[in-house]
């Protein structure tokens, strides 16, 4: 009858001495090898207003989605590809990897375990990037508002541009959310990645408060 003590995992991520085939000894820090932990920088929009407006128009009209489908909302994203809703005619495409996406759609509730993955995926996306919070759960926890493991407000962990309410919102509501997001980008208000870089410490403090197994660098590209 001992206190619950979890086995220390991820021992392969710790610093250690390695002997090379030549007999030479050197220190390996896998944390530095696998990730870069440089702080994000603010990338201000271009000073040339017409150019920036044109770029913003392009960004709004060509949306590459990264869907985070751990919540129930993910099921509402699939019909958008079908002939009935056909989001492709609005310039919305799906990409399978965070590196190439611009819009991060959080499909529903985020638990502590998934918020860690959300943060990592969000940080791997290349700016400018935007986030859509789908369903009530991302707004205030929804029906899981008093759960021990569900995050109540998503915007305390990553900057959110558009929230779509409902439990569940219909695919039409999701399309409407994309329209709102497009309008926001065209007006030049979609600067979520810069906001994240500016308030980096606040976001990190919030993330670290709930993620107890912080086995990654502070910022992983």
């Amino acid at each position: 009858m001992a206190k619950m003590n979890y086995k220390k995992r991820f021992s392969d991520l710790e610093k250690r001495m390695v002997t090379s085939p030549d007999g030479e000894e050197f220190e390996v820090d896998p944390m530095k090898d696998y990730f870069s932990d440089a702080r994000p920088k603010v990338h201000p929009p271009s000073k040339i207003t017409p150019l920036e407006n044109f770029m913003n128009w392009c960004r709004a009209e060509s949306i590459y989605i990264l869907g985070f489908g751990t919540g129930c909302g993910a099921i509402e994203m699939r019909p958008l590809m079908s002939p009935m809703y056909d989001a492709f005619r609005f310039g919305i495409h799906w990409r399978p990897t965070p590196r190439q996406s611009t819009v991060f759609v959080i499909g529903g509730y985020a638990s502590v375990k998934t918020i860690k993955r959300i943060v990592r995926s969000y940080e791997q996306m290349q700016g400018p990037k935007w986030v859509i919070g789908l369903c009530s759960c991302t707004i205030n926890g929804g029906m899981y508002w008093d759960s021990y493991n569900t995050v109540n407000r998503l915007d305390h962990y990553i900057p959110v541009d558009v929230y779509i309410t409902g439990c569940m919102p219909r695919p039409e509501a999701l399309l409407d959310g994309f329209t709102v997001l497009k309008k926001r980008i065209k007006e030049g208000r979609g600067e979520g990645s810069n906001e994240y870089a500016e308030n980096f410490d606040w976001y990190k403090a919030n993330q670290k408060k709930i993620i107890k197994s912080w086995d990654m660098p502070d910022y992983n590209w």
């Binding site: 990338h43 770029m55 009209e61 290349q126």
Partner: peptide, 12 residues
């Protein structure tokens, strides 16, 4: 639009 948007990404 896709091509211009991709060239206009700020970070890499």
């Amino acid at each position: 639009v896709n091509l211009i948007r991709q060239w206009a990404t700020r970070t890499s």
